[in-house]
């Protein structure tokens, strides 16, 4: 049985404050190769965590494993989200529970319009929660408001999902979908890749407009520049499948300045 707390969310929020996402000694591999070698991370409601690290450190793997990508085999540890172990859940169940992954490479799906895709998604999630589907008028009204919020051009909604979209349009579409689905936890996987500075700013503004005390964000990025716009509460450095350093937002600036080599050296020194 599913219990929903309608109306008294704020009274309960103190409980969520304790922890929203708890990743404990998470290990995952692909094709027999271990990529995540014991990740530990806690995210509380409203927090923004940046995951940084050199290429191949496992950043995108972590994002994928949280969203439920099936190519990865979880070999150890657990992930508790809102009190539930999500590792046994299908990707669609995780989405319905409130986890959203903004893709590094959003997929083009010819023949399915963005609007139809989102309507299906919204109503499938509502079904999961035991809520009645939105009718066409309610849905359209909601979608228009959200499109405005993240500066998404209405005309893109009627086009096939991401088909022929520019890099910036694709990323903006990710943020727009996030606005529509209103997740509790948004994971942005290299959202800055392939964007020029203007597109980056627009996308970041979209993400910022969705920040709230209840919504948490994990920003996966190689570069510091996205963090100029989406300012994190914490920065974690992932290297060789482990979080090797955590710190306040200033850590990102330090990485920008000094690169990753000093971190690598530190890790190797410890052995």
């Amino acid at each position: 049985m599913r219990i929903t707390f309608a109306g008294n969310y704020h009274e309960l929020s103190f409980k969520y404050k304790s922890v929203m996402l708890s990743i404990n000694d998470l290990r995952a591999s692909i094709e027999g190769k271990e990529i995540l070698k014991g990740i530990n991370l806690e995210v509380k409601p409203g927090e923004v965590h940046a995951i940084m690290g050199p290429n191949g450190s496992g950043k995108s793997t972590l994002a994928s494993v949280l969203a439920g990508r099936e190519e990865y085999e979880v070999t150890g540890g657990n992930v508790v989200f809102d009190g539930k172990d999500i590792l046994e859940m299908a990707p669609e169940e995780r989405a319905a529970e409130g986890i959203f992954l903004a893709f590094q490479y959003p997929v083009e799906i010819p023949g399915v319009t963005t609007i139809n895709f989102l309507k299906t998604a919204v109503n499938e999630i509502r079904k999961y929660k035991g809520e009645a589907p939105l009718d066409a008028a309610q849905f359209l009204k909601m979608v228009r408001e959200k499109a405005k919020l993240v500066s998404m051009n209405d005309s893109l909604l009627k086009r096939a999902l991401n088909e022929g979209f520019s890099g910036g349009e694709k990323k903006r579409n990710e943020v727009f979908q996030m606005a529509v689905l209103e997740p509790k936890l948004a994971i942005l996987d290299e959202t800055d890749s392939g964007l020029d500075i203007d597109a980056l700013r627009i996308v970041a503004e979209g993400v910022n407009s969705l920040r709230s005390p209840e919504r948490s964000t994990i920003v996966v990025t190689h570069y510091q520049r996205l963090l100029d716009y989406i300012v994190p509460d914490y920065v974690h450095v992932l290297y060789k499948g482990r979080i090797v350093k955590s710190g306040p937002k200033e850590l990102a600036l330090e990485l920008e300045e000094k690169g990753y080599d000093w971190i690598k050296a530190e890790v190797e020194a410890v052995g």
């Binding site: 989405a95 997929v107 799906i109 399915v112 895709f117 499938e124």
Partner: peptide, 26 residues
């Protein structure tokens, strides 16, 4: 494409249907 749709909350059978319908659509 299937994972992309599922990550948005669309169940696997529904996602398959949408993808195949889209395939037929042109």
């Amino acid at each position: 494409a299937l994972f992309y749709m599922r990550s948005r909350g669309i169940s696997q059978p529904e996602a398959m249907s949408l993808l195949m319908f889209a395939f037929c659509a042109d």
